[in-house]
Design a protein around this nucleic acid. Structure first.
Lengths: 233, 233
DNA sequence: GTCTATAACCGGATAGAC
DNA sequence: GTCTATCCGGTTATAGAC
C-alpha cells in the first residue's frame, strides 16, 4: 500500500510536470508550434509517456480550462464579498477571466478552434464539458444572487446560463482583439456590463413583459432538451 | 493568347473538379475523414496538384462559404420581393442559410473549428474575410430596408451588422443541434425572429432610448477600430 | 502501475523535376 | 500545370525495464 502510494505520487508529479511544461510552451509559442515531441523533450520524459497521462494534445487543453475556471473563482471571491452592485459584480467576474487568460492570448485563439467543434471533446457546449459548465455557471448565479438588484423569479432561474453565454461572448471578442493592452475588450466589458445590468432592471417593466415571457419560454424550451441530451440517466 | 486561354480554361476545369470532389467528400464523410490524398485520388489528380489550386485544406472551405453565400442570395430573392413583414423577411433569410447548409451539417461542425481561430484565414471576423462580410451583410440590410417597420436612422446604420451576427449565432446553434430534423433550430428561429423584430420596434420607445444610445455608441466605437484594422489604407 | 525507447502509421504540407 | 518524393508532427504500437 505504501508502494502504491509512492508510485501514485510519482505519477502525479510526472503528470503535473508534463502539464506545466505544456502550458509553458503553449504560452511561449502557441498551440501548433508546441509539438508533443517538444513537450516530452523539455519535460524529460518519453513521448509515449505524455500520451500515457494525456490521451491527446487536446486533453492538455482541458486541463487549461480547469485552471482558468478555478483561478476565476479564487481570484474574485474576496472582491465579491463586499460588492452589491450588479454591474460591478459582473465586471469583476468577467474581467477576471480575461486577466487570467491574458498570458495565453495567442494560445487561446487556436484553442477555441477545437472549442467550436461540437464533436470535439473540448466543445464547451458538448456533453463532455457538462462538468465545466456545472462548475462555471454557479459563479454567474452568485453574481446575481449577491447583488441588490431585484430580479423576477422566472428570469432569475435562467439568468446564470445567459450570463455565462455573455461571458463566453466576451472571451471570443477578446480572442480577436488585437488592440494594445486589449483596450477594446476593456471598453466592451465596461459598456456591456452596464447594458446588461440595465436590461435586467428593465426586464421587470410592464412594457417588456411579453418580450421577457417569450424569451424565457424559448430558453426553457431549449433547455429541457439540452439537459436531456447532456445528462442521459 | 489562345494558348493561355486554353491552359487557363483547363486550369479552371481542374480547379472546379477538385472543389466538386472535395465538397462531395466533405458531405459524405465530414472534414477529418476527407484526406487531401483521397480528394486527389478521387479527382484523378496528383496530391501536389490539389495544393497547386488550394493552398491548404482550409482554403477549400473558403470556397464552401462563398457557395453558401451566393445560394442564400439567389434562393431568397424571389420570396423577399413581395414580403414586407420584418419578422418574416428575417426568417426567410435565416432559414435559407440553414437549409442550404443542411447536407453539410456534420461537416459544418468541424468547419467552424477554423472559423473560431482568429489567425486562421477562415475566421469570419478576421481581415481575410472582410470580403465575405461585405458580401453577406448587405442581404441583412435589404431585409430591414424592404420591411415596413420604421427604424430610427441611428439604429438602421448598425442593424445589418447586428443581424448578421445574429445569423451567425443561429448557425452556431444549428451546428450543435442534434434534434431530429433540427426542430430545435426551427423553434429557435421562429421565436428569435419574433423577439428580434419586437426589440427593433420597441427600440424607438422613450424608456429604451438611453439603452439604445449607449448600445449604438458602443457599436460605433468598436466599429471604427475594426474597420481601421481590417482595411489599412 | 509507471516509464523508456524506438519504430511505424497516417495525413497535411512542400520542393523540385518534368 | 502536373507529378513524385519527402518532410513533419500527431498518434499508435511494441517490448521491455523498474
Amino acid at each position: 500500500m505504501a508502494g502504491t502510494e509512492t508510485t501514485t505520487r510519482k505519477g502525479e508529479r510526472t503528470r503535473a510536470l508534463i502539464l506545466e511544461t505544456a502550458l509553458d510552451l503553449f504560452r511561449e509559442r502557441g498551440y501548433d508550434a508546441t509539438t508533443m515531441r517538444l513537450i516530452a523533450e523539455r519535460a524529460d520524459v518519453a513521448l509515449g509517456n505524455t500520451y500515457y497521462y494525456f490521451r491527446s494534445k487536446e486533453h492538455l487543453v482541458q486541463a487549461f480550462y480547469e485552471r482558468v475556471d478555478d483561478a476565476q473563482r479564487v481570484e474574485t471571491a474576496a472582491a465579491l464579498v463586499h460588492e452589491t452592485d450588479l454591474k460591478t459584480r459582473l465586471r469583476i467576474v468577467v474581467r477576471a477571466v480575461i486577466e487570467i487568460m491574458q498570458p495565453y492570448h495567442r494560445f487561446a485563439g487556436s484553442l477555441f478552434r477545437s472549442a467550436a467543434d461540437p464533436r470535439s471533446p473540448l466543445s464547451p457546449f458538448g456533453p463532455e464539458s457538462t462538468e465545466a459548465r456545472r462548475k462555471g455557471i454557479p459563479l454567474l448565479a452568485e453574481v446575481v444572487d449577491g447583488s441588490k438588484t431585484w430580479v423576477p423569479d422566472d428570469l432569475r432561474a435562467e439568468l446564470p446560463r445567459l450570463l455565462w453565454l455573455y461571458q463566453m461572448g466576451v472571451v471570443l471578442f477578446w480572442i480577436h482583439d488585437r488592440s494594445p493592452e486589449y483596450v477594446r475588450t476593456e471598453r466592451l466589458i465596461d459598456h456591456t456590463t452596464e447594458i446588461v445590468a440595465r436590461l435586467i432592471s428593465l426586464a421587470s417593466l410592464p412594457v417588456l413583459r411579453p418580450l421577457r415571457r417569450r424569451t424565457l419560454r424559448l430558453l426553457a424550451d431549449l433547455q429541457v432538451n439540452e439537459l436531456s441530451l447532456s445528462n442521459p440517466v
